[in-house]
Design a protein around this nucleic acid. Structure first.
Length: 259
DNA sequence: GCATATGTTATGAA
DNA sequence: TTTCATAACATATG
């Protein structure tokens, strides 16, 4: 699930659930989601800390506290939910943070592909050092450079987090479809116009997906037809094509998205 | 058993 | 050095 818009939602969940509150109790129910830190130290270092305002970079969520920073990555199936402490645990609730008599933040994740890190000042830089600029606030010129200076396919350029942080498989397909660019095109060979359309449509798509809290499966969007059998393009009605591009399942319209 | 899944990363090859 | 394809990670669903 999680791409930039989902992580942005988790950021608001974190801030509204736990922002300004003190961690009363940490429970690590599955150590498999902890990285580089033991369950004992994780608890010890976070209990008693107060959550400050959190930040997001790409698909990373940075939960600042008056102590260490908690870094969260949601892989494909992670989420952050706000519960009451007495609510039944979900089988995939891996770590819980009790932040009040009535509030408990839970890191819930089925597949445990990523998880939680604990970081002091420089550790944050080290963990996020390889991330490219965030897709939600990159400027037009920088975006242009990311495409022109890069070898390989345009879809790969969009979803490579070290190039541009935040876009995932669904968003990339949606943006390429809106901008009418074939996902297999070489990034460096796009025209100035195509790069301009990609930038504008990336901004639009990311903005409305953030407002929706996720990449919305609207029928006017390509994303709304990903799972259709015999899916057709919501713009021209042509049959959509699916295949693998840059190693990921890809859906595109061979009529609208020309090479 | 097989294929699929919105993410990342190690590995070997081009 | 960069980029690509592939497998791996852990788990569920069709």
């Amino acid at each position: 699930m999680p791409e930039l818009p989902d992580v942005e939602t988790f950021r608001t969940v974190l801030d509204s659930c736990a922002g300004g509150r003190t961690v009363q109790r940490v429970e690590v129910r599955d150590t498999g989601v902890l990285h580089g830190v033991s369950a004992a130290r994780f608890r010890r270092e976070l209990e008693g800390c107060r959550f400050a305002e959190s930040e997001r970079h790409g698909k990373w969520l940075l939960a600042r506290t008056d102590g260490p920073t908690l870094l969260l990555h949601f892989g494909m199936t992670g989420q952050l939910v706000c519960c009451r402490p007495d609510e039944n645990l979900h089988p995939h609730d891996r770590v819980t943070f009790t932040v009040g008599d009535d509030r408990q933040l839970r890191y819930r994740d089925q597949r445990k592909l990523k998880g939680l890190w604990l970081a002091g000042g420089e550790d944050v830089e080290r963990l996020l050092g390889s991330q490219g600029p965030d897709a939600a606030d990159i400027g037009r010129n920088d975006f242009d450079l990311l495409l022109t200076q890069r070898g390989g396919g345009v879809k790969s350029a969009l979803i490579d987090q070290s190039n541009l942080a935040g876009l995932g498989n669904l968003l990339a397909d949606e943006i390429l479809w809106r901008a009418r660019v074939d996902p297999a095109r070489e990034a460096g060979r796009l025209t100035k116009e195509e790069r301009g359309r990609l930038y504008t449509d990336m901004r639009r798509t990311v903005r409305s997906a953030v407002r929706a809290g996720r990449v919305p499966p609207r029928k006017t969007w390509l994303t709304g037809h990903r799972d259709d059998t015999d899916a057709t393009c919501p713009r021209c009605g042509e049959k959509l094509r699916r295949g693998r591009v840059s190693g990921r399942s890809t859906v595109w319209c061979p009529h609208c998205q020309t090479g």
